[in-house]
């Protein structure tokens, strides 16, 4: 269960304060697929980064299975990001000079999975997302956008997180590839009872998710 309570996020910049997220409260039950839609600048990415503990809200609390993640210390934050959350980004964000396999092994290293286990687990994850054979040894620059996003999904799943946060995961892909990626996320989440929160522009995709939140000017306008 993901529970957002009266969360506000303000950025102070030179030209004054920007309130990116205004007093948002919402709940997403475990294992559900939620989508967030809204115009550019409405605060979708900001909300996602708060859920993933990449940033702290100015006020309000975010509880994951009853634990308030806004109060975690540095060490606990690293563990939370590494073990409970998996991120998928619009621009894939793979480490360019590491192979696909090494990219998937990264989160396993950070959560101190034994060295011997890492390779096996990373390989089977890549197999699951359809990156097989010599493609596992390629660097991101030698993979297509769709393939890179599959590697990113495998990396997000590496530590069997409770929640996957995806910021426009299909934004850089053609609609057919985008649909395949979405289906992949959906089926993997379902099989492992993982909660997914995905930001999207694609209303046809949003329509197929369990619940949809609409943001406008930082406020939650529709659920």
């Amino acid at each position: 269960m993901l529970e957002v309570k009266k969360v506000t996020k303000q950025f102070s910049s030179g030209s004054g304060d920007v309130t990116a997220v205004k007093d948002i409260s919402l709940q997403i039950p475990a294992g559900k697929f939620a989508s967030i839609i809204g115009k550019s600048g409405s605060g979708k990415s900001t909300l996602l980064s708060l859920l993933g503990a990449l940033d702290k809200p100015t006020s309000g609390s975010i509880e994951v299975d009853g634990q308030d993640i806004t109060r975690l210390g540095d060490r606990a934050l690293n563990t939370y990001r590494g073990k409970q959350i998996g991120f998928v980004f619009q621009s894939y964000n793979l480490v360019p000079n590491l192979t696909a396999l090494e990219n998937v092994m990264l989160p396993l290293e950070f959560t101190r999975v034994a060295r011997r286990e890492r390779v096996g687990r990373a390989k089977s994850l890549l197999d699951q997302v359809g990156i097989t054979g010599d493609k596992q040894q390629r660097k991101p620059s030698r993979l297509s956008g769709g393939e890179q996003q599959r590697v990113a999904i495998a990396r997000a799943l590496a530590n069997q997180p409770k929640v996957i946060l995806a910021d426009e995961p299909t934004g850089n892909l053609d609609s057919q590839t985008g649909k395949m990626i979405f289906d992949l996320l959906h089926s993997l989440a379902r099989s492992q009872n993982t909660t997914i929160v995905a930001v999207t522009h694609d209303l046809s995709i949003a329509g197929k998710t369990d619940m949809t939140f609409t943001l406008s000017d930082g406020k939650l306008v529709k659920q």
């Binding site: 060490r75 990001r81 991120f87 964000n93 950070f110």
Partner: peptide, 11 residues
């Protein structure tokens, strides 16, 4: 890249 490493759990 440093942001990515932090986001996936690196200290």
């Amino acid at each position: 890249e440093i942001g990515v490493l932090k986001a996936i759990g690196a200290s």
